[in-house]
């Protein structure tokens, strides 16, 4: 597991109230459908990820985030040297 994925899981678990879903965890699980995180928590997750990784998640990038892996991909994309 990449360090960024571990950090993301740490953030997601703050907003996940059905703890049982994590027993089956895989990075391809959808944040809302599989991890049962309320969609209003998008705000908290995005702002926490931006703070933790010192990046800005724009509106288009946010539309690409369905799974945990998608967050990892967005972070890696944002941290790529230009």
């Amino acid at each position: 597991m990449k360090p960024s994925e571990a950090n993301i899981i740490d953030i997601l678990k703050r907003y996940s109230f059905e703890k049982g879903v994590w027993k089956q965890y895989s990075p391809n699980m959808s944040i809302i459908g599989d991890l049962k995180i309320n969609s209003a928590r998008i705000v908290d997750i995005v702002l926490d990820v931006e703070d933790r990784f010192d990046i800005e998640i724009d509106d288009d990038s946010l539309e690409s985030i369905v799974t945990v892996q998608d967050i990892v991909d967005v972070i890696e994309q944002k941290n790529k040297p230009v």
């Binding site: 969609s39 509106d59 288009d60 946010l62 539309e63 690409s64």
Partner: peptide, 8 residues
């Protein structure tokens, strides 16, 4: 099929 991006 995209995720929810509220500002859009």
């Amino acid at each position: 099929r995209k995720a929810f991006s509220p500002a859009k």
